[in-house]
Structure formats: structure tokens, C-alpha cells
């Protein structure tokens, strides 16, 4: 019971960390960044490089953010910006970028599965249950990410301008806000967050050139049911992630892997707003 609750909480935390970057980009730019999976892979390899260089495994997080952010800048400038008026084409082009990232990594690092060093190993005793310390740490990291993003959006001028662009871009422009710059910065931040997410999940599984792809669809569905709110994303991660854990433990892991996508599709059919408030 306690183990299952911890599974649900940690799964939701991981999903939250993976989906925030996508949510940010979707909220501001109204496009789905299919390169998110590729950028996560990039973050995973950044973690690999960091640990192979013998650096502290925690350093993997900033390094991955840097990798993702720099790639994000280039992607926004050369691919996403020209497609601003064609959102479905933006999905395709960013998917193409995902392929490119995967192949470049394959050429550089080979096709094989590799492992990184986890910054935390072993287990912690919690409520009489011995549980993976790293998974528990992820809850803290995801919470910190969520809080930092909230602080950025709610507490800074840039965050205020970003929220303004999300709500009504034309009105924001009329007030002198450079919405193109806001979009550029948002995409960069979203890509950096994708990199961080990639670095965070590597100790849980392994690193390979397609590691980000399986996460993409779940993250994408979570974002669609959440609208553009970090809070409803949290709710969606807890509910759908929880459902995933329950289905996986009580029925079959394979069906568990489908739970988020199928539930999200049905939720959107019944209530197009999903978890977002009216």
C-alpha cells in the first residue's frame, strides 16, 4: 500500500519533470514540440558525458540544460519560427529534428545501450518501506522545478510578459511586449527543461539514441489534457500517472504503458478542456 503510494507519487514526479518543458512551449507558442523526445535524449547523453568525464553526477543536470537550451535556440530560430502560422507542419518538422538528433547521437556514440552513474544510490526507509533513494529525490527535484517555474512565471517581469503572451498575444504586442523574443526564450527554456528531464531519467533506465521517444507521447498527452497551466499539469500527472501505476501492478505492465495515452484521449473526447479550469 505504502509502496504503491510512493510509486504513484514518484511516477507523477517523473512525468511532471518530463512534461513541463513541453507544456511551456505549447502554452506560449501553441505548437507541440515533437523534438522534445530528441532533446531529452540529448540531455541523457549530456549526463553520460558528464559521468564519463568523472564529474559529479549532479553536474549532469546543468550540463544537460545547457545542451538542450543551445539546441533549442537553433531550433526555434531556424525551424519553428518560419512555421509559426502552420502548427501541424511544426509538429512534423520538430519530429524530423528528433530523427536528426537521434541519428547524430548514433553516429557519435553508437547504437548500444549505455548506463550512467546515479547521483544517489541505495534505498531510504520511509514509513517502514525501503524505497529507492533516487526516485524519492526525483520528487524533490520535480517539486523544485515546478516551484522555480512558478516563481519565474509569477514573480518576474519576463514571467508576467510570458503569461500575457499566453493569454492574448495581440494585446501583449500592443502594450510593447516583444512577443517574438518571449517565444524564443520560452522555446529555449522548454528545450533546456527537456534536456534536464533526459538527464533525470537516465539513472532509472539507460541511455540509447531513442530513449526520449517513448516519453514523448505520454508527455504530449499530459500537456493536451492540462491546457497551459502548471497546476493542472500536476493534477493530470497525479491522476493519469496514478492510473498507470495501478493498471501496471494489478493488470499488466503492457496495459499500464497505454493507460496515459488512452485515458487522455477519452478525457479529451468527453471534456475538450481536460484538467484545465474553465
Amino acid at each position: 500500500m505504502i509502496a504503491q503510494t510512493l510509486d504513484i507519487v514518484t511516477t507523477a514526479a517523473i512525468l511532471y519533470a518530463v512534461a513541463t518543458g513541453l507544456l511551456l512551449v505549447f502554452g506560449v507558442m501553441k505548437i507541440i514540440n515533437f523534438a522534445h523526445g530528441g532533446l531529452m535524449t540529448l540531455g541523457g547523453y549530456a549526463a553520460l558525458v558528464t559521468t564519463q568525464a568523472g564529474w559529479n553526477p549532479w553536474l549532469a543536470i546543468p550540463v544537460a540544460a545547457l545542451f538542450g537550451g543551445v539546441a533549442g535556440m537553433a531550433i526555434e530560430r531556424f525551424v519553428v519560427r518560419p512555421l509559426y502560422a502552420r502548427p501541424l507542419d511544426a509538429i512534423l518538422a520538430t519530429w524530423g529534428l528528433s530523427i536528426i538528433i537521434g541519428q547524430v547521437i548514433t553516429i557519435a556514440f553508437g547504437r548500444g545501450v549505455q548506463f550512467t552513474q546515479a547521483p544517489l544510490s541505495g534505498t531510504l526507509d520511509l514509513f517502514g518501506e525501503s524505497y529507492s533513494a533516487y526516485r524519492l529525490a526525483l520528487v524533490g527535484i520535480a517539486a523544485a522545478l515546478g516551484l522555480a517555474l512558478t516563481a519565474l512565471l509569477q514573480g518576474t517581469r519576463l514571467g508576467l510578459e510570458t503569461r500575457a503572451v499566453i493569454m492574448n498575444e495581440d494585446l501583449a504586442r500592443g502594450l510593447g511586449i516583444n512577443s517574438a523574443l518571449v517565444r524564443f526564450l520560452t522555446f529555449t527554456l522548454g528545450a533546456a527543461l527537456a534536456g534536464v528531464a533526459g538527464a533525470l531519467i537516465t539513472p532509472l533506465s539507460s541511455v540509447d539514441p531513442n530513449m526520449g521517444v517513448p516519453w514523448l507521447v505520454n508527455a504530449f498527452m499530459l500537456v493536451l489534457v492540462s491546457g497551459a497551466s502548471l497546476l493542472s499539469l500536476l493534477a493530470a500527472c497525479l491522476v493519469l500517472g496514478g492510473a498507470q501505476v495501478l493498471v501496471a501492478t494489478h493488470f499488466s505492465p503492457v496495459l499500464g504503458g497505454l493507460t496515459i495515452a488512452v485515458l487522455a484521449a477519452v478525457i479529451l473526447r468527453i471534456r475538450p478542456k481536460g484538467f484545465a479550469r474553465d
Partner: peptide, 10 residues
Amino acid sequence: AQEKALFQDL
């Protein structure tokens, strides 16, 4: 603007 000139949720 004549319409939607305020951010209603801010």
C-alpha cells in the same frame, strides 16, 4: 482596443 483589451485573468 475595443474588445479584449484587458488580461481578464491577471
